[in-house]
Amino acid sequence: MNSVNLSSNLERCWDIIGVTGDRSCSQLPTYAHCRNCPVYSAAGRQLLERPTLENYRHEWTQLLAELRSVENSPNSSALLASETLKVVIFRLQREWLALPAQIFKEIASPSQIHTIPHRGNQTLRGLINIRGEMLLCVTLNHLLHIEAVNTTMQTVSAIAHSRMVVVEKPGNTWVFAVDELYGIHRLHRQELRDAPRNQTQAYAQGIFSWHGGTVTYLDDELLFTSLARKVQ
């Protein structure tokens, strides 16, 4: 491309006669795009190799030292404990449970579940169509050892409907039914208490108080790992 003074920010040939300019550069047919031109590459090298600004290293050294000081501080655990958790609360039978909100991909109405030949077990229910995609449908009741009850459960919302929820982590997507879905709730990590020892709480990271009762905050990593193992 035509030679320009690369030291001047106002004379960037790619913005004047190149692809983002009037495209009058005589070398444009040869290189097709400015990013393939030696002049453009030289400008990039000049930008990366420019001298650091005064006090640049000092400012970054000071900032990193402050961060390291916070990490090593006796109060660092208190700072982590104040982290806000965003969870989705739902009910299975009488149990109120929660999972991290970021793993929830979709909420759907109940629909037909198609059984998989020769793949029957108490955790895997079959395949379900979610927006044209066939996904594995499981039951958490069996995995978490939640027993069915015949008595009427007091609901939180005025109208409680069962729902199918889709949860997803990289490489794994599961669908399961819930008896009632409350929605998103925020809490501080310090609100979590140790869960009592029983079969359901084996998957718990902790419990927290909510609406006069308790909610079990499930370990999503352990849950996904167990589901993958159970449906094999």
Rank of each mutant, 00 (worst) to 15 (best):
V4I: 01
V4A: 02
V4E: 06
S7Y: 14
D15C: 12
D15N: 11
D15L: 14
I16N: 09
I16Y: 02
D22F: 08
D22Q: 10
D22P: 05
P29D: 08
V39I: 02
G44F: 01
L47S: 10
T52G: 10
R57L: 15
E59I: 12
Q62K: 08
L64W: 03
N72T: 05
S73H: 05
L79R: 11
L79N: 04
V87R: 02
Q93H: 00
E95I: 09
P100D: 13
K105P: 00
K105M: 04
I107M: 05
H114D: 07
G120K: 14
R125T: 14
R131C: 11
L136N: 03
C137W: 01
L144S: 03
Q154I: 07
A158L: 06
I159T: 10
A160G: 10
V165L: 10
K169N: 04
N172H: 15
T173R: 13
F176C: 06
V178E: 00
E180Y: 02
Y182L: 15
R193D: 03
A195S: 15
A195Q: 15
N198M: 07
A202I: 04
S209V: 06
W210M: 06
G212A: 04
T214W: 08
V215C: 13
D219A: 12
L222C: 02
R229Q: 11
V231N: 06
